[in-house]
Design a protein around this nucleic acid. Structure first.
Lengths: 342, 342
DNA sequence: ATGAAAGCGCTAACAC
DNA sequence: GTGTTAGCGCTTTCAT
């Protein structure tokens, strides 16, 4: 059994109430006893037990980062790692720990978000990777649980969102390839159950129309955001049409772009000589490959940081004015897009 | 305030003790009342509070996965993700949740592993990413905390390890390049503070000696496991010596290999025509690139799974005979190594 | 400024 | 088989 508040009280010759006051920085305690108590705390290496504290206090706030689909999906992409890092960095600064839990579909089926939070005494959560097929997708919207969702908008009073302006970003990169004189685009589509997919599609269409191109004529490769599917489908297309397939693959994620790149290579073509390729996300890996991928960096580390920050603000303040936070993206020019001479 | 055991007791017309018995599957309770209670529990959606349970019970076991260096290092590689997935998968099977926490150096400085475990009521932990410069490196070895460490051997009574036979694996891949008739190897070295680096080096030397090659003559590139450093150093070497640098870069990690590949490309050379390259880890990305990387797959998902399994076994049983678990690796042949005609 | 004591939600030992 | 009750380690209200 490890050392408890009682031991400290005994050693300091005071009662547990006084020790608690010293520990929680209450004002109604003499500097002298406080010093003495903290000295003993330091010497013994005593740390208050979080469970006990949670149980007895209303002020204690435990927060968690819930990851949907992480142990289930085929391509759990590395963006989640950057997000973790960002959230951890923010919590670091306030010397607090944030627990990370996976929430697979069975868990979501077995207990509601309210139950999960009650069970683990969570006063708020950050949710990442939620698809509209997740049970928690509706669950959080009809609940009062303070939460911050990454990548889709939520409207509850004590809820917030951290998003990227996907429409604009995807329009930007689409316009970029158009400005490089590409006219025969191939869209490499993400996953219908992910909201970002639809926003990016909107941006894609907007950029085309703005340049007098018709979205309806653009061939689409459906990938479910999986590298392998992107690879397979691209191979089929290339084997069937070769260079006639188009001039540039505009992909909804870096992972998809990797599949496309691999397919182009395996079919005997080159990037960017034969085909150009763009990605979306800004995964670390997109800079490692040759040619480096032209992509949109979502700044996932920052997204994680902002998410943690926003959640903490929501938990602290009564009302938070701006609960939809848009994190700026960065266009990253690589060498995967060729300029087409007219 | 959410629903508590008292509410259930009231609704069922019994006392909290009886409800607790029903919930914990004790034998001394009539099937009838148990049924009735569980029915009410299901209807109300009641879930026992973990903090309260932890506080009052000796049987409750909370475990956590501690990640060292994740929010600090430059190249936090994606292996950690696979490890998480593996651990989550095991916990999934028993419908339990494992919390993941980052342990940066400041945290390790502020509280010992014992304090951390006392604070969060952890009965055991899995530790990943520990370097021998981490404070917890010695801390865990001199503590009684039940734990499983990934990638280095620990000897405590209630402690275990999940490791890869790095010597053998690195010897295997080294021998492979030698068998492809490479004689002028360049070693791309990892990080001294990581134990795996030394084991891999041992395997490297063994393979060379076995083939009558002298390790002392092999040029070494030091990388600290960072892609960028590997890139920079390789560029320097190539600019200075060109093809005379050697014929194959034998790398201690995939990330290093990515840096080397990028450098080779940027210096105007090709893989595997001008230089061959091997990696180590089996990151997802190593299969995405063209040419695919010849590497050792450490099967990190399995490592995570086994780590969680081992920790749970240690916590359940009195004594666990085999506490050092070696997870099998897989040699993965890509196209990044060329066969040299003699 | 400090002590005393109730109570957070639950388990478990002891009655009956 | 079920009720009763004493804690688990802590916070917080009420006395003093």
């Amino acid at each position: 059994m490890s050392i408890s508040i009682k031991d400290i009280a005994r050693l300091a010759g005071v009662t547990v109430g006084t020790v608690s006051r010293a520990l929680n920085d209450y004002s109604d305690i003499s500097e002298k006893t406080k010093k003495a108590i903290l000295k003993i705390v330091a010497e013994t290496g005593y740390t208050p037990n979080v469970s006990a504290r949670t149980l007895s206090s209303k002020r204690q706030t435990n927060i968690a980062l819930l990851l949907s689909g992480i142990a289930e999906e085929k391509n759990r992409d590395s963006n989640v790692l950057s997000l973790l890092v960002g959230a951890y960095k923010f919590m670091n600064d306030s010397d607090r720990l944030i627990a990370t839990y996976p929430i697979n579909s069975r868990l979501q089926q077995r207990k509601t978000i309210e139950q999960l939070c009650a069970e683990y005494s969570l006063s708020g959560v950050i949710i990442f990777g939620l698809k509209n097929t997740d049970l928690y997708y509706k669950n959080i919207q009809s609940s009062q649980i303070p939460c911050v969702v990454v990548d889709f908008e939520i409207q509850g009073a004590r809820q917030g969102s951290v998003i990227t302006n996907d429409e604009q970003a995807f329009a930007d990169i689409t316009e970029y390839v158009i400005n490089q004189n590409h006219r025969r685009l191939i869209l490499v589509y993400g996953r219908d159950a992910s909201e970002v997919t639809h926003r990016r599609y909107t941006g894609f269409c907007a950029a085309l129309k703005k340049n007098n191109l018709d979205p309806a004529t653009v061939p689409v490769i459906y990938t479910d955001f999986q590298e392998q599917v992107a690879y397979d489908e691209t191979c089929s297309l290339l084997r069937e049409k070769g260079r006639d397939a188009g001039t540039v693959f505009v992909c909804m994620s870096d992972y998809c772009a990797f599949g496309v790149l691999r397919a182009i290579h395996d079919c005997g073509f080159s990037v960017p000589e034969d085909f150009s390729v763009t990605g979306f996300d800004g995964t670390e890996f997109s800079r490692f490959i040759s040619p480096q991928l032209t992509t949109i960096d979502q700044n996932f580390v920052k997204k994680g940081f902002v998410a943690a920050q926003l959640l903490c603000t929501i938990l602290e303040k009564e009302t938070v004015p701006q609960r939809i936070r848009t994190v700026d993206y960065t266009f990253r020019k690589g060498e995967s897009v060729r300029y087409l001479a007219i």
